[in-house]
Structures are given as structure tokens and as C-alpha cells.
Amino acid sequence: MSTEATLQTAQALLAPWTKGARAPEPDRLDVLIDAADLTAAVQTLHDARWGYLAAITALDYLGKTASFAQDARWQALMASGRVPADGAPLEALYFFAAGRAIVTLRMLLPREGAAIASICGILPSASFFERELSEMFGITVTETPDPNHLFLPENWPAGVHPLRKDFAPGRQ
């Protein structure tokens, strides 16, 4: 199957939850979804045996809130009243790869109290990625089988998340 066809299959599969889609590169497809729909979307990809989970990461948009003015997900988040007007969002990225094609599920999360459902029930291999996501970005992954730190020491201060933009590494 060609890369385009593979991507089209994924697009069709994910259509029920898609809030927007874009193709940043010829072999990539970014699908914008709501955080609440994550497990359903992953389940669909998994049931259709579409690709494998390549990575999970997140981005911090501190000071870049303006770039979301047109984003439906951002408006929905603002409407929910969970975000202070100047609170820059976090964006969780779930990469799935099938051959050359890469589909990225992108979800906006509020900065305070960011939470996302675990996909370990569908893909057990996500456990390490979810542990990393929660300690590095402070995104709570609900019902993940092992919520402990993966990389950071046990005595790492609570509420400090190294990969957020407001973390400035000072010499210890």
C-alpha cells in the first residue's frame, strides 16, 4: 500500500474524533483531537492494526498562546472555563507509525491540572512513555499501571517538571 493510501486509511479511521487535520510533511498526518477521545481513537487504530506506537511526547506553548486563536480545540478548552485567559496550553503528541507514514494525535491540555487517560489497557508498551510524560511535563496520566518516576530521582521536588518551558535548570 502506498504511503498516501495508508495515511488516508488512518484519516478515515480517525474521522469521528477529528477536530482538524493537517499534513506538515508528505508522509505525515497531524490529527487534532480532544483529550477525552484519546482512548477511543487509539482503540480504533489498534483494532484496525494500523501501525505501532512510536513515541509519546508533549510541547509547552508558554508565551505562545496567540498561535491558538484559530484552533477549535483551544476555543473549546477556553469555553470549558478550565483555563485562565493567559494560561498557555500544553500539547500532548502521540506518534503512530506504519512503514513510511506517521500519524500524530495532538491534544491540547490546560497548563494547570492537565490530565489524560492511559492507553496502557490497549497498548501495554505505552507504560514507559506515559511515566515519562507525567514526570517531564506534569501531565497526569489517569489509570496508568505504574505512576512512579522513571528517570527523575525519588526526592525530586513535586510540581517541578523539567521539560516545561518555565523550568530553568539551576546548578544544584
Binding site: D146, H149, L150, F151, L152, P153, P162, L163, F167, P169
Partner: peptide
């Protein structure tokens, strides 16, 4: 079970 992080240097942040 496995516990990692003994050689975690923070390269992604750096």
C-alpha cells in the same frame, strides 16, 4: 520491574 534514571542527565532540556 525496572527502574531507570541513574544516568539521566537531562539532555533534551539542555
Amino acid at each position: 520491574t525496572v527502574r531507570l534514571g541513574y544516568v539521566h542527565r537531562g539532555i533534551e532540556k539542555a
